[in-house]
Design a protein around this nucleic acid. Sequence first.
DNA 1: TATCTCTACGTTACCGGTAACTCAATCCTT
DNA 2: AAGGATTGAGTTACCGGTAACGTAGAGATA
Lengths: 336, 336
Amino acid sequence: MSNKNKKISLSEVAEAAGVSKMTASRVLRNEGGFSEQTRERVLAEVTRLGYLPNRLATVFSGDQKSTFIGVSIPDLGNEVFTHVLEGIDRKLCSFGHQTVLGMTQRAAGEEEKWIETVLAWQPAGLILTGRAHTNRSLQLLENAKIPVVEIWDLNSSPFDMCVGLNHFDSGYQMGRYLLTKGYTRLGYVGTSHDAANAAAARLNGFDRAIADGSASLKKQLLLKDVPGFYTGYYGIEQLLSGAPETEVVFFQNDNMAVGAIHFCEIQKISVPKDLGIAGWGELPIASVLPYRLTTMQVNHLRIGQIASEKLLMRINGDSARKVTDVGFRLIEGETV
Amino acid sequence: MSNKNKKISLSEVAEAAGVSKMTASRVLRNEGGFSEQTRERVLAEVTRLGYLPNRLATVFSGDQKSTFIGVSIPDLGNEVFTHVLEGIDRKLCSFGHQTVLGMTQRAAGEEEKWIETVLAWQPAGLILTGRAHTNRSLQLLENAKIPVVEIWDLNSSPFDMCVGLNHFDSGYQMGRYLLTKGYTRLGYVGTSHDAANAAAARLNGFDRAIADGSASLKKQLLLKDVPGFYTGYYGIEQLLSGAPETEVVFFQNDNMAVGAIHFCEIQKISVPKDLGIAGWGELPIASVLPYRLTTMQVNHLRIGQIASEKLLMRINGDSARKVTDVGFRLIEGETV
DNA sequence: TATCTCTACGTTACCGGTAACTCAATCCTT
DNA sequence: AAGGATTGAGTTACCGGTAACGTAGAGATA
């Protein structure tokens, strides 16, 4: 039945049906210009031979547009980005597009290499996490002439389009909030691993708020590890041993904050009486706590959905807003 | 500089360099048969024009093999599968392949549709989660003549290759373990949402162990929701209100188990004194607990890595074992 | 000097679809 | 009955690369 390693092409279907491949093509696209008899014969052969069209051919020849969308995210291990990716893929799928994944923050220059590879496949558009790109990356994007959405950190003058939130501002707001709570000796624990440098922007905002309020950032710790539960656990230990007078600590994300709370429980440090803890991102892990974690709410899924929507609009020739701010919301929990 | 919406092709590079496109092609592939002078002229034009090869053309013409790998996972919202996906993408990337993502378990028949779409792009191989496929899906895979790896649930006679663990056995072992701990009235809480039906297999195994031990499964609850923290929280509440005499509950995964423990804390139900709790999958969320959760350890990342390795071997013409069992390990925690 | 080989190219054909064009037979119109 | 429109096709060219083959000129060899 099936010839060795050779896929059935439209010509073979056409030949089997006794028509030219152009006629077969017309039948399959229901373009008209064929008789009912011919239609049935062609479709019968399609089924019998198990014919599947080769999208490579149509896209390559320029007759159809590609439906690939390249999506680069820093890290699947980071829960934050899997939510974003889920939002993206859901939306893209429902509009008949395919997500070509790239994890690009394991090594420097990885993004550039990935962009080059994926562009060679003629994608219809690109979604990139973060706003830092090499010059050559920008040149490649320029030449590609396809819509590009940068997500996560807001960029008032993006390469093309942008969806995210102002991480600096969210850090600043958290700083202001902690100051209004009466804290004067604040700490920060994060990692140097953050992909899009968004966490660094949050820290800068936090710093600025403290400077504006003339309090002091006693200690900031940047661990060389992934921003997870354990990093928070050991991070708080390390911070407190170096700066035991710290009154409140802002963490890179909720996972780390919850790790820190776990440490406090074991060490009988009362939260928030002895030490305040604030997280960022409103991750599911925080639901585990018997009280509400003070954190910053961000709608990750929505970032992905909006990014996809903008891209699809532009692919369809419509225009889309350059910058979309999804914002953030301070959750006044019970941990500060 | 850049012509409207038209990408630079090899012919244009060749023309600019004053050679035929064949010669330019030879230079780019470093195939030999050109002078140093010609090489320099061609490469200079490549840089100047920002030429990027069109992989669609070479793969389409059959001169090169595709480097796409289609990967279907049920749900990115389920942490378990993001770990598997991470393992897959890391390995594939490092061997120059691209992951084309598909989330296929939101609606029935979604997988079949996805397979058809992705096959049209001539992927080099496929990784599918789960072992249940429609007849037409199998027919499509048959015609495609590319390697396929089914992951997650073990299948002694897979379509092509298979990596995973025996979910039935893992449920059985958990059941046996709980019986040896002296429990006689056991419960189960899961969801009907489980993608690959692997959770159903675990429940069957659990059931069998209980039957073999002549204890009784008092109540099993299948919620119509995602298997997360909240589902566990409300699931245990519902189960206990219907069967308060239950002594121990096995959950579909750790997230649900931790949610249940949270409920117990609030209700002043002592774990494990008043109620035993067992999870499955050893997810990071369990690290939040001040004691070790009784659960089943599974190396998710490794499943993805092995699946990719087998696929890559077969793509390179080597043979690979049909079935790989990554196994599981009971973690005897402090919650039963 | 005639032939032979090697170098550095150029030419043609092909992959699998579709657009654009062509064309014969039939039907309709006045 | 002649001319025009419609129907149901077939033919050719093209997309961007590469394999396979062809070839002119230079240098080596007999």
